[in-house]
Nucleic acid binder design. Structure first.
Length: 782
RNA sequence: GGGCCUAUGGUCUAGUGGUUAUGACGUCUGCCUUACACGCAGAAGGCCGGGAGUUCGAACCUCCCUGGGCCCACCA
């Protein structure tokens, strides 16, 4: 032991350097799940982090460190823990990352080549992610990492899609999409940039049916007049009060449209009346959906007006059509004025031309028919904290069928082909990974409708949530291992951030329910967001993301983890703060020095309770109470409680009161050998327990201290003991004891005495059992 | 703009009908007391965002307002 203690002689503080030394040990522990274990199973569906983020935000790392504390605590509470780690690798972010990195454009690059470049980027980025996770001792099963773009994972995504297709859950429909006419393709929201453009705001009249009144409308898109399906006015707007619910007549087209009161129309903009067209912008999409207005498409995918636009406009490009309709309106005397305004226009960031919103044929997963059931499931799910459930419930009420097809490259392919004769879809069997854009359908494929044998593959991919929403099925081996699945599904827990309730949580419940008839987990643990020091969400676009590696190198991983656990209750947002991170580091040094001191005294064999002094009994009772509280915290998946309780105990009770009380006794000054033994026994009893209780939060320092002081086997393989019964009366007495200590310190201070100086003071009757320790602590003479 | 969440000493945070309202960081004062100056002891600092209501009683329940956050949507 003397050898081990060298670390204490050489280091007065806990720091990152010592952590690095412990890292080998801490990270060499294996956490492979054993399904045949006798222990109760605790399984966690953790978010596979998205691989393209660099640097990974501190907020995200903090969340993962809390999840890790939960996994570790469950192990130490005696559970067999399934704690998988995955990487989410599909979708637009990596496509855009690769475009930037290699200075290429997705649609100008052969798909095969582009996919390879994405994969290369992902492999590099992934390495970095793993390094960060390991740097703070994330204890998932790294020997069985899953990736959402692997053949196995994509097979699951496709097979479960096929299963749902067969159950009739997949439907076709049109969906207004961002369409770049110049590029001839849909583009993602992320590929849109908004630009202030000069444009004309045209004021023109609609006649009111059965009246000689008129209504003045202002529009930047008059060419969409033929697609106008309503006019909105603000319900508060006096000018239009008597026109609400009247019918207006579209100039030129002579179609009837309703005038509807809706808060979207702003009285101060334009004329106060706005025409809703399919589709001028996304507001039109929302309003048409909300008010169930008819859709009338007048722009085709070539960017030209179609027959619905009328003979004069048909075939014209959008800009030409705008000019033409303005002069038509002017000729007919409908135009009141034309204003030149700056208009924020959505542009394709690639072609720099305005995008159009055009309905395209897409696949949907049916949601609307089971909304009641989903709400029921949501209510069954235990949510931590419970208040966040409202976000899910509210979303379920307004959610619609989920569009699942995407016109992208790096994603799981939609496993469908179409008959070249009759266009009927052909769906293959489950159990294989299909790439219809470059593969022929299975050999025996025959069109179910016309018997045709020629097919063309669907070249689309799925929305990436189609992949991640079956993570609960992947990690429980839904397709590949029946026994494993039966044992682990539904999982015990889903952990995730509040920002993806509407997506990941919602879609996971939906898909897993459709496939298994059950909720995928018993509980969902929803964390808040990591915000910067000003309280704003960290994000790359704002540039306020903080690199966790820098913080960890500076303050240490345990300090980082302790900060994350102690800063806020799960579910609350937490602000990054260097000073509080530093505070956590200070606490670890405090703990380190408590251990250094206790280590000096050596060990004592177990002793009878009868041999303990009153102070010893008190601090042991306190420790049992602390154990009870911490266990409750961990059982409730709330590391905030143990982190704060332990800090308070160590810093405000154990160190200043108990240790000071028994220091002299432990040194053996003026005490019997038995009394000395009792002190040393108790000091170690308490320290041992503190280490066990805080180990899930701070794995490095506890590993190091445990090795030196107590352990052959790693602390992380130990159990947190059940708390023993304790006597409340002695705790109350202990409170008085601490008050008395303060009183003495105060009075020494008043008398300008040093803490070592003698003092004459009466020890209260009820504190007599502590008399000997008190006298030596304060140097009391009478 | 819509929905939801939230508001506690300078900063962050616990508390959720009756407590002298918790703790941390910071500040101030005095101390290197054989573990720690990343420390010890002491102190100052809060009309629990504003207004109204429910109640014998509200930081805690209800409503309105204001600020902040998240998600969605973004100006005809």
């Amino acid at each position: 032991m003397a050898e081990d203690s060298k670390i204490f002689e050489e280091n007065k503080n806990w720091d990152r350097r010592l952590e690095k030394e412990a890292e080998k040990k801490v990270n060499s522990l294996k956490w492979t799940f054993s399904p045949s274990s006798e222990k109760k199973i605790f399984s966690i569906d953790t978010p596979p982090p998205y691989t393209s983020g660099r640097p990974w935000h501190l907020g995200a790392a903090a969340q993962y460190s809390k999840i890790d504390a939960i996994a570790r605590s469950q192990r130490m509470l005696g559970k067999e823990v399934l704690f998988p780690v995955g990487m989410d690798r599909n979708g637009i972010p990596v496509e855009r990352y690769a475009e930037k990195k290699y200075d290429i454009k997705m649609r100008d690059t052969p798909r095969d080549k582009f996919i390879d470049l994405c994969r290369e980027s992902l492999d590099e980025l992934e390495k970095e992610m793993f390094e960060i996770l390991r740097s703070f001792a994330y204890s998932a099963d790294f020997e069985n990492v899953y990736r959402t773009d692997s053949v196995e994972y994509r097979t699951l995504t496709q097979s479960t899609f096929i299963e749902m297709w067969k159950k009739g859950k997949i439907i076709r429909g049109t969906r207004p999409s961002n369409y770049c006419i110049d590029c001839g393709t849909t583009i993602a929201d992320a590929e849109i940039e908004y630009k202030e453009m000069d444009t004309n705001l045209v004021y023109f009249y609609f006649n009111i049916k059965g009246s000689d009144k008129k209504i003045l409308v202002a529009s930047t898109r008059p060419e969409l007049l033929g697609a106008c399906s309503a006019i909105l006015v603000n319900p508060e707007d006096e000018r239009f009060r008597d026109l609400i619910n009247k019918t207006a007549i579209t100039p030129i087209y002579n179609k009837e449209v309703k005038i509807i009161a809706h808060s979207y129309a702003k009285a101060e903009f334009g004329s106060g009346a706005v025409m809703i067209c399919s589709y001028g912008d996304y507001n039109d999409v929302m309003i048409i959906k909300e008010l169930k207005l008819p859709e009338n498409i007048i722009i085709d995918t070539n960017g030209r007006m179609n027959e619905n636009a009328g003979e004069k406009l048909k075939g014209l490009k959008v800009k030409e059509a705008r000019k033409e309709i303005i002069s038509m309106l002017q000729e007919a005397g409908y135009v009141e004025k034309i204003e030149n305004i700056q208009h924020r226009t959505p542009m394709c960031e690639r072609s720099k031309t305005p995008i159009e919103i055009i309905p395209l044929d897409e696949y949907y997963l049916k949601v609307t028919d089971i909304k009641d059931k989903l709400e029921e499931l949501a209510n069954e799910l235990t949510m931590i904290p419970e208040q966040h459930k409202q976000i899910l419930i509210n979303w379920l009420k307004v959610s619609t069928d989920w569009p699942i097809s995407r016109r992208r490259y790096y994603g799981t392919e939609i496993p469908l082909w179409y008959c070249t004769k009759c266009n009927e879809p052909y769906i293959p069997e489950e159990g294989r990974y299909y790439q219809p854009w470059k593969e022929k359908p299975p050999q025996n494929a025959v069109c179910t409708k016309c018997g045709g044998r020629e097919f063309i593959g669907d070249d689309r991919t799925f929305d990436t949530w189609m992949d991640s929403s079956v993570s609960a099925l992947y990690v429980t081996k839904y397709l590949s291992d029946k026994d494993f699945y039966e044992k682990t599904y539904p999982l015990s827990l889903r952990t995730q951030g509040i920002d993806i309730i509407r997506t990941w949580l919602n879609y996971s419940i939906l898909r897993c329910y459709l496939l298994t008839d059950k909720l995928p987990w018993e509980k969902a643990w929803i964390d808040g967001m990591g915000l910067d020091e000003h309280g704003e969400k960290m994000s790359k676009s704002k540039g306020n993301g903080i690199d966790p590696t820098i913080v960890i190198d500076k303050y240490g991983a345990d300090a980082f983890r302790f900060w994350a656990a102690s800063e806020a209750l799960p579910g609350s947002n937490f602000l990054f703060s260097e000073s509080r991170m530093q505070g956590s580091a200070k606490f670890l040094t405090k703990l380190w020095n408590v251990a250094r001191l206790i280590n000096q005294f050596g060990k004592s064999e177990d002793i009878n309770e009868a041999e303990l002094n009153e102070s010893d009994k008190w601090i042991i009772a306190y420790t049992e109470k602390l154990t009870e509280e911490c266990r409750k915290g961990y059982e409730g998946l709330n590391p905030f409680i143990p982190a704060n309780k332990i800090r308070e105990f160590v810093w405000n009770v154990f160190a200043p009161h108990y240790i000071e009380l028994v220091k002299a006794r432990a040194y053996g000054e003026n005490f019997s050998e038995n009394e000395k033994k009792a002190a040393i026994y108790t000091l170690n009893y308490v320290l041992n327990r503190i280490l066990l209780l805080i180990a899930p939060v701070t794995p490095f320092i506890t590993q190091t201290l445990w090795d030196v002081l107590y352990g052959k086997e790693s602390i992380h393989y130990q159990r947190i003991p059940e708390s023993k019964k304790y006597d409340d009366a002695i705790l109350l007495l202990g409170d008085k004891l601490m008050e008395f200590n303060s009183k003495i310190w105060n009075s020494k201070k008043e008398k300008k005495l040093s803490l070592r100086d003698e003092i004459k003071i009466e020890i209260p009757q009820d504190l007599k059992p502590f008399e000997k320790d008190l006298k030596s602590m304060h140097n009391i003479i009478n």
